Simulated scan of single mutants.
Amino acid sequence: MMAAFSMKGRFLLLLWSIVMIAMSSGGSYIGYLSVEEYLSFPEEVFYSNGLVSLILSFVIMAPFNVSGIYVFIKGERMHARHQIFLFKIMIFAIIASVLCGFLFKTYYISELKSKGYFRCAGVPSGWMPGMAVKYSSSPVLCHQ
């Protein structure tokens, strides 16, 4: 028999699930907005794979949220068989996120090159090294 959760524990898990739903929804929305901006081909682009991968953050976090809500409703842990199924969904979503990020990068960088964009040297201001690359439609914009 599984141990029952107290009402305090159940409400904390519900609160945690709500916060995680909000954060992962926000992450997915930021990823969507980033891809939308990338595809508008502005004069300057700060490309990051991480922003593209954010699109699936809601799906990646969904198993955690489902299990937290389940505990709130039932008062006990989810059966191991269901936890394993949710874990597989999460792993699949992580792999899909990385794969989508890689495929989009391959497509997008080739599109930038075909449109005559230049890759700027150095780290874009405000970004950690290796996290983003600046592309511009003119070499003059690289130095601004």
Rank of each mutant, 00 (worst) to 15 (best):
residue 82 H to F: 13
residue 63 P to N: 08
residue 18 I to V: 15
residue 117 Y to C: 07
residue 9 G to F: 03
residue 141 L to E: 04
residue 66 V to R: 05
residue 95 I to S: 08
residue 135 Y to S: 04
residue 131 M to G: 00
residue 47 Y to K: 00
residue 87 F to M: 14
residue 29 Y to N: 04
residue 143 H to W: 06
residue 21 I to T: 15
residue 75 G to R: 06
residue 136 S to W: 01
residue 25 S to D: 02
residue 56 L to I: 01
residue 16 W to D: 10
residue 92 F to M: 12
residue 1 M to I: 04
residue 40 S to R: 15
residue 11 F to L: 15
residue 50 G to E: 06
residue 15 L to W: 00
residue 89 I to R: 02
residue 84 I to N: 05
residue 134 K to S: 09
residue 35 V to D: 03
residue 69 I to V: 15
residue 24 S to H: 07
residue 48 S to M: 12
residue 98 V to D: 05
residue 32 Y to L: 15
residue 131 M to I: 06
residue 88 K to Y: 10
residue 106 T to M: 10
residue 82 H to P: 00
residue 36 E to V: 12
residue 110 S to N: 13
residue 10 R to L: 05
residue 108 Y to A: 11
residue 96 A to I: 04
residue 80 A to K: 12
residue 68 G to E: 08
residue 43 E to W: 00
residue 87 F to Y: 06
residue 61 M to P: 05
residue 29 Y to W: 14
residue 5 F to C: 05
residue 98 V to I: 13
residue 25 S to Y: 10
residue 119 R to T: 07
residue 44 E to N: 08
residue 99 L to H: 04
residue 119 R to N: 04
residue 119 R to M: 10
residue 105 K to L: 00
residue 113 K to S: 13
residue 6 S to L: 03
residue 24 S to E: 09
residue 14 L to P: 02
residue 40 S to P: 03
residue 83 Q to S: 14
residue 104 F to N: 09
residue 89 I to Y: 02
residue 95 I to P: 03
residue 98 V to T: 07
residue 15 L to F: 13
residue 1 M to L: 06
residue 10 R to T: 00
residue 100 C to P: 03
residue 80 A to E: 15
residue 127 W to F: 13
residue 19 V to P: 00
residue 99 L to C: 09
residue 134 K to Y: 06
